[in-house]
């Protein structure tokens, strides 16, 4: 799925809005380090085989949220120009929006953000998801050259 340069900037900012990256992670929060997640690359990979309608929907969603600061009256700028606090507040507003279309497309962005975030092996490892399995069976995840994961006993 091809994205324009401004779509890439918005996409990165939107996904980082859901889980803002920090060099100094706060206790009890799952915080990506800056540059740890390849949001744009994973997003493109994920949507390579998507249906034409779904691809169109993704572009619409990126533009809807990317331009949300303007049409909500927050700021005359794209989403990437907001600071961290404003990004979180705006995403919260969009996820609770009275128009179902806005809410659904914002939720779609959150689904995609979760996919790219937890598709990153180091983030998955910190989430604790695999703890139960590690105790039951000696399984480790190895990162392959292409970035995908492989189980090894």
């Amino acid at each position: 799925m091809r994205l324009t340069w401004w779509e890439k900037r918005w996409l990165e900012a939107i996904f980082e809005g859901f889980a803002p990256p920090r060099a100094d992670a706060a206790e009890g929060l799952l915080t990506p380090e800056p540059g740890e997640v390849d949001h744009v690359g994973r997003f493109a990979e994920m949507n390579e085989h998507a249906s034409p309608i779904a691809k169109l929907g993704m572009h619409v969603a990126v533009h809807l949220v990317g331009l949300a600061p303007v049409w909500t009256g927050t700021k005359l700028a794209g989403f990437d120009r907001l600071d961290e606090e404003a990004r979180v507040a705006l995403l919260e507003e969009l996820m609770e929006h009275p128009f179902a279309l806005v809410k659904e497309l914002s939720w779609l962005m959150k689904v995609q953000a979760a996919m790219t975030l937890f598709g990153t092996p180091s983030i998955r490892a910190r989430s604790g998801y695999d703890r139960g399995r590690e105790e039951k069976m000696p399984v480790r995840l190895r990162v392959k050259k292409d970035g995908s994961m492989k189980e090894v006993a």
């Binding site: 889980a19 009890g28 929060l29 799952l30 915080t31 979760a114 975030l117 937890f118 910190r126 989430s127 604790g128 998801y129 703890r131 139960g132």
Partner: peptide
């Protein structure tokens, strides 16, 4: 981030 830090 607090919720996803405890995915188990």
């Amino acid at each position: 981030q607090e919720r996803v830090a405890n995915l188990d």
